[in-house]
Design a protein around this nucleic acid. Structure first.
Lengths: 174, 174
DNA sequence: TGAAATGTAAAACGATCGTTTTACATCTGA
DNA sequence: TCAGATGTAAAACGATCGTTTTACATTTCA
C-alpha cells in the first residue's frame, strides 16, 4: 500500500476513535511505523492531514450512498454503520472540535453536506417523480438523526429512521 | 453571581464555541478574571469542570423541554436554538472529543439521553393515549436530526423536523 | 485581636503539543 | 558510478497543556 494511503487510513481510524485534538502526531507515527519527518513530507501539516482524511472519507461515503431509493439510502447507512461503526458524523465532529475556526475543515464539512443533500434530492426525485424540497429536507433530518442517535442507540436507530422515512415518502405520494 | 456559577457559565460558553480540548485553563481564567488557584479550588479538575458544565446544561435543557405535545417539543427546540445557538449536541461533542474514554463524560451523555428519551416517551403517551415505542424512537430521531442539521442548515431544520413529526404522529393515530 | 478562610498574581512543575532539524542508511535511475 | 530522492532514528524547537505551589492581600468571624 502507498505510504500516503496508509497514513490517511491510520489517521482516519485514530481520529474517529479518539478525536482529532486528542490524537497527537506521535500516535500517528507509532501507528504507521513511519518517522515524523516522513509524515510531514506527505501530509504537510496536521490540519492538512485532517482535510485529507475528510476528503477520503467523503469519497468512500458517497460511493456507498450511490443508491436510487430512500429505502436503499437507509439500507446503505445501515451497511456503513455495520462496517465502519457509529461514532457520529466525522465532519460535524471535526467542525465541533475546532469551533468552525479552521477554514479547511469548515470547507470540508460544507462540501460533504452539500453532496449529501444533492444525493437525497436526486433520490427524492426518483421516488416521487419530481422535485420535493420539503420531503428531501425531512429525509436529510432522519439521516442525520440516525447517524447521531446510533452513537448511543446503535444500529436499531438506522432501522427506525428507515421506517420513518418510508412513512414520510408514502404520505408525500398521496 | 456565585463564583462557581460564573465559572460554569463561562466554561459552557467557551466549550460550546471552541470545543473542549481547544479551550485551555488559561482561557477560562482570563474569561472569568479568576486565578487558576481559585478555578481549581472550585472545579477540582478540567474533567470535573466539563462534567459540571454538562450537568448544568442538562438541567437547563430539561427545564425548557417540559412540554406535553410533540409539536411543543419542537417548538421548544426552536426556542433553544434561537437562544443558545446551534453547534450540535454538547454531550455528543464532548463524548466524541474524548472517544468515550472519559467515564464522567460518558456517564453525562448516557444520563442526558436517557432523560431525553423518557421525556419523549411521556409526550408520545400523552399524544396517542398509550405507549408507542416505535413512534417515540422516530420522534427522537427527528429531534437529534434537527439538532445536528441545524449546525449547517440553521433554524429551518427544526421547522422541517416539526412538520415531519406532525406527519408521523398523525399517521400513528390512524 | 487574631486565626482561618478566600482571593489574586505569578512562577514553576513535568508532560505533551505540532513542527523542524541533524545525521545516517538505503534505494533509484541516468 | 554517483547524485538525488526517500526513508528511519532521534534530538531539539518554542509553545502550550493541566496542575501545583509560593507569596501576599483581603475578608470573615469567634
Amino acid at each position: 500500500m502507498d505510504i500516503k494511503t496508509k497514513l490517511i487510513a491510520a489517521a482516519e481510524r485514530l481520529f474517529d476513535r479518539h478525536g482529532f485534538t486528542a490524537t497527537g502526531i506521535d500516535r500517528l507515527t507509532q501507528a504507521t511505523g513511519m518517522s515524523s519527518r516522513t509524515l510531514y513530507k506527505h501530509a504537510g501539516s496536521k490540519t492538512a492531514l485532517i482535510a485529507a482524511v475528510l476528503s477520503e472519507r467523503d469519497r468512500r461515503f458517497q460511493r456507498r450512498l450511490a443508491v436510487r431509493s430512500v429505502d436503499g439510502l437507509f439500507a446503505a447507512l445501515g451497511d456503513w454503520v455495520r462496517v465502519e461503526g457509529s461514532r457520529g458524523c466525522l465532519f460535524l465532529r471535526a467542525h465541533g472540535e475546532t469551533g468552525g475556526d479552521t477554514p479547511e475543515i469548515a470547507a470540508a464539512l460544507s462540501a460533504h453536506k452539500e453532496q449529501l443533500r444533492e444525493r437525497i434530492r436526486l433520490i427524492v426525485i426518483n421516488e416521487t417523480g419530481g422535485e420535493n424540497p420539503a420531503l428531501a429536507e425531512q429525509i436529510l433530518l432522519l439521516f442525520e438523526g440516525a447517524t447521531a442517535t446510533a452513537v448511543y442507540r446503535g444500529a436499531p436507530a438506522v432501522a427506525s429512521a428507515r421506517a420513518a422515512a418510508a412513512t414520510l415518502v408514502e404520505q408525500a405520494r398521496s
